[in-house]
Write a protein that binds this DNA or RNA. Structure first.
Lengths: 141, 141
DNA sequence: ATGCGTGCAAATGTTTTGCATTTTG
DNA sequence: CAAAATGCAAAACATTTGCACGCAT
């Protein structure tokens, strides 16, 4: 099941109306392999002949994030990045940010996920999400 | 050994001069239990009768971070937070950010650290640092 | 004396908000 | 038609930069 389909199901269930700007953002995110920032989204849409209001982009991102449809990735460069969050944690992963060129490298590791699960249980609080960021050098740097 | 002493040793070795603003920031950070943002630092210094230029605060934070004396914590609220990084990774820890009240709860977990070490090795790239953020509800929320 | 450290103000860049307009159901 | 979605411009933030001044060495 495509992420965009999942999004539509969730949003319809939430009684949210249709909207062009939203479709453009959803479609772009769905086609992307890596996390995008609001600014990057704005530029891409501009460049592909579907200019979209900046405010709308931010509002769409907020809406999707509020419904758990987006994962937020913070690499600490002053802008938030977002990528599709699939149901059941499918394709769930984390990132290595290269300190040389800023590239984002995705990876996943079941062992790490288990460790996070254990510590979450140990802390005795309800943990709804997590984020792991490694800093280092990518293959080229 | 106090963190501030460690800072002075490192900075002196780096040939950095003395400065009042810097001392104020270092002293404040050393006394703090939790990570502070630049804005919070500015306010605290203001409130304790030692007003300090905003630019100086940012420059001090950058200097300390560049020398590996600060750990950066990004909770995704649009501002960077910093806390003392002690030599040898002493007191190294991670955070849970409460989605209810925004509180930061520190925790550490050797098991988690080992898992991160393993995945770093497995990726075959040089990993110089890492950050884990849990999202959830703190004890009160 | 030579610069590094500082502080102010202005610039920058991202994100948010107010409001008029268009679109959806 | 009523409510929601959109787009623009301006505001609100955090952070950075330029520059003049003062203090450390």
């Amino acid at each position: 099941m495509r992420w965009s389909d999942h999004v539509h199901v969730v949003l319809r269930a939430a009684g949210v109306r249709h909207g062009e700007a939203r479709e453009r953002v959803i479609s772009l995110l769905d086609a992307q392999r890596c996390a995008l920032s609001a600014t990057e989204i704005e530029t891409r849409l501009q460049d592909t002949g579907q200019p979209t209001g900046r405010a709308s982009i931010y509002r769409v991102l907020e809406l999707l994030a509020d419904h758990g449809l987006l994962e937020r990735v913070d690499v600490g460069d002053g802008q938030a990045r977002y990528e599709p969050a699939r149901p059941g944690g499918e394709h769930h992963h984390h990132h290595l940010v290269c300190e040389g060129c800023g590239a984002l490298v995705a990876f996943d590791d079941p062992d790490l996920e288990r460790a996070i699960g254990r510590v979450s249980r140990r802390l005795g609080v309800e943990v709804t999400g997590h984020e792991v960021l490694l800093r280092g050098a990518c293959g080229r740097c």
